[in-house]
């Protein structure tokens, strides 16, 4: 019996007016896999993420999460089903504390009714306590537990990235989409991030789709890589195959004219 992929897209595409931003995007990601998505600037990588998280509605094709069709769902519904993401430019809840940032993402996991909060019923306290504990556990994975009461925007850049990943993990996802997590990081921070990604995979066993420009990182951690350019998939395979693929090199560096 074949396994159902966690994420599967079938000829996914979107057209903005006359511009075909993404077309015929096919990918299958299985549980525990780490797949890289690379391509030159403007290739449509982030658009793919926006399609997968319900920010845009695909104009062509379909995508499935564990065999369930996700077309036309709104972002929060997609998140509830199990696709979480981080953003290329960090989007934290800046005025809230580190702990609250994570708690927001746990919102739908520890539900209580409005009246429970109004009258502070025992259920309210129980749920809030569990929520607090899980949020702190998540922060401790990223060594942020002693910064729980910091205002999020006061964290250094690398830790803001980590917090964003922690927040995405708090949604209880099956697949995590990381949009350029290493952008703007120095080599030490990138190494730390690598460590983080490793820990996430060990602890949660989830699938990860990673957009990244840092080639050493991509080649290091990704099991498979998909390359897109001008919205079209131009190569797909193992890291070393991609590194030697003529078309990919051309896309990045241009063609040798003579």
């Amino acid at each position: 019996m074949e396994r159902t992929p966690v994420l599967k897209t079938v000829n996914l595409g979107i057209t903005f007016g006359g511009l075909r931003a993404v077309e015929d995007f096919n990918i299958e990601i299985y549980e525990g896999e780490l797949v890289g998505l690379i391509g030159p600037n403007g290739a449509g990588k982030t658009t793919v993420f926006n399609l997968l998280t319900g920010v845009y509605t695909p104009t062509e094709g379909k995508f499935y999460l564990s065999g369930k069709n996700m077309n036309g769902k709104k972002t929060h519904q997609v998140v509830a089903e199990g696709i979480a993401r981080t953003f290329q430019n960090i989007r934290l809840f800046k005025q809230m504390t580190v702990l609250e940032n994570v708690k927001v993402a746990l919102n739908s996991k520890y539900e209580y009714k409005f009246f429970a909060s109004l009258f502070r019923t025992p259920k309210f306290w129980r749920k809030e306590e569990e929520l607090d504990k899980e949020a702190r556990d998540l922060l401790s994975i990223f060594n942020l537990e002693n910064k729980a009461n910091y205002i999020a925007s006061n964290l250094p850049y690398g830790q803001q990235r980590k917090l964003e990943i922690a927040r995405a993990l708090a949604t209880g996802m099956k697949i995590l989409l990381l949009d350029e997590p290493a952008a703007g990081m120095n080599p030490t921070e990138t190494a730390e991030l690598l460590e983080c990604i490793k820990i996430i995979r060990e602890r949660f066993g989830i699938a990860i789709l990673l957009i990244e420009h840092d080639m050493s990182l991509v080649m290091n951690v990704c099991e498979r890589i998909q390359v897109i350019n001008f919205g079209k998939t131009i190569a797909f395979g193992l890291p070393h195959e991609i590194a030697n693929n003529q078309e990919v090199i051309e896309a990045y560096l241009g063609k040798n004219e003579d």
Binding site: T75, V79, K103, N107, E111
Partner: peptide
């Protein structure tokens, strides 16, 4: 009571970043 509950956290997250709030479910 409304502000100091999960509802309060949710609306504050919307104030800070609407897109990230919806991406957090």
């Amino acid at each position: 009571m409304f502000i100091r509950s999960r509802f309060g956290r949710a609306i504050e997250s919307i104030r800070d970043d609407e897109i990230a709030a919806s991406a957090s479910g």
